[in-house]
């Protein structure tokens, strides 16, 4: 009974449930970070150290790509709302 696999497993399960249950996109991304924490812990606990280094290097890159997509999404919704308010002029 080791401590690291136990904690990593609990983090994986909680993160997986949290990604489904939360509705805000930022909350989903934070829960995804929690799941990655557990994943790296499970990889290290079976001594695959090189894969652990590579996956912990790639983690911020994929988080930044998700966040850029979220910012683009918010900006698009804002612009579409402004455009929609101007549209009723056409429909009159």
């Amino acid at each position: 009974m080791e401590v690291l696999p136990l904690i990593s497993g609990i983090c994986c399960i909680l993160g997986g449930i949290g990604v489904i249950l939360h509705t805000n996109p930022i909350n989903k991304i934070i829960m995804f970070a929690l799941l990655e924490v557990g994943m790296i812990g499970l990889i290290v606990s079976s001594y695959y150290l090189d894969i652990a280094i590579i996956s912990s290097l790639c983690e911020p890159i994929c988080t930044i790509i998700l966040l850029l997509g979220y910012l683009k999404y918010i900006t698009t919704i804002k612009k579409k709302k402004k455009y929609g308010r101007d549209l009723p002029v056409l429909s009159k």
Binding site: I29, A33, V37, A52, S56, P60, T63, L67
Partner: peptide, 18 residues
């Protein structure tokens, strides 16, 4: 030790972005 340092610095970068 190298794995621990790499993991910690990269997780800090990720929370900085969030």
């Amino acid at each position: 030790g190298i794995v621990a340092i790499t993991y910690f610095v990269c997780s800090t970068l990720s929370s900085n972005a969030i």
